[in-house]
Amino acid sequence: MRSFDYRRAADRTEALSIAGEGRARYLGGGTNLVDLMRQNIEAPAALVDVSRLPDSIEETPTGGLIIGAAVSNSVVAVHPAVRTQYPMLSRALLAGASAQIRNMATIGGNILQRTRCAYFYDVAGSRCNKREPGAGCDAIDGHNRYHAIFGASERCIATHPSDMCVALAALDATVHLLGPGGEREVRLLDFHRLPGEHPEIETVLRPGELITAIELDPSAAAANSRYRKVRDRSSYAFALVSVAAGLEVVGGRIEDVRIALGGVAAKPWRAVRAEGLLRGQAPTRARFLEAADAELAAAKSFHGNAFKVELAKRTVAAVLGELTGADA
């Protein structure tokens, strides 16, 4: 790790102005960034600690929630409104990392956490386009069990590892940003980028921009929602595949449905196609499988992760089944 300056910001304005001074990075709980610095993958000259900004969870006038970026993953997970109105978010958070890490981790940091691709982490010994544009990608023909089946490019096949973001994608959350040019809002679905030619550019965040909050809109589907994470051990492992889904059934027909997949792409993958096939239909197991099939038809797997296609199909159908009481 290279030595660096450390400053703690008292408020957002101060955070922005310190960050504007030079090669500074915001620091949340540090559970990802500090690891990356220790591995010499990141080497910021300065850290601006935004983990203690006075953030909280508030209700919005429309009955939604606005969650400050510095709130810890643990606090969000157990918040009564989150548990009752957005259960998939609570469950996704609790499915992530360990209790200790969730206590440290912030919402802002969780959104911006980077891939766990082992070749990305192996600075000394492996080629990685994300770390070093143009170097090559050792994962494509290597160990790629945890890698993408959607939206990968010839440059990079890594996945985004966040559980929380999968729920946020299904909930169609809004990310609030504050930058040198002022405030703006971006849909979470548009926040992360697919690798394309530039896997090193992972989000639409602009230099110096700070995530200030995420905003959730209430909905019946959000309140009737679940998160399921399939992994290699019962806890403390990243998702092979995860599914966040919410469902509203009115008069025997699906009124609203939200499905997002984790562990399958460089961003949380909203299953738009499956949702489209389900809306207006009767909630049956056969329909769920059909919709999942259609979504996964576009998947492209690699030698180590071909199983994910089948796994994702089954998990989508099972979670939707649980939400309607239809047997998996």
């Binding site: 766990r116 082992a118 982490y121 192996d122 290597g142 806890s235 492992a237």
Partner: peptide, 18 residues
């Protein structure tokens, strides 16, 4: 010939829940 599971995040020993 390189071991890619170079951390205990990648090399899975049982967690409590296992």
């Amino acid at each position: 010939g390189r071991v890619m599971s170079a951390s205990i995040a990648d090399y899975h020993v049982p967690a409590h829940l296992d």
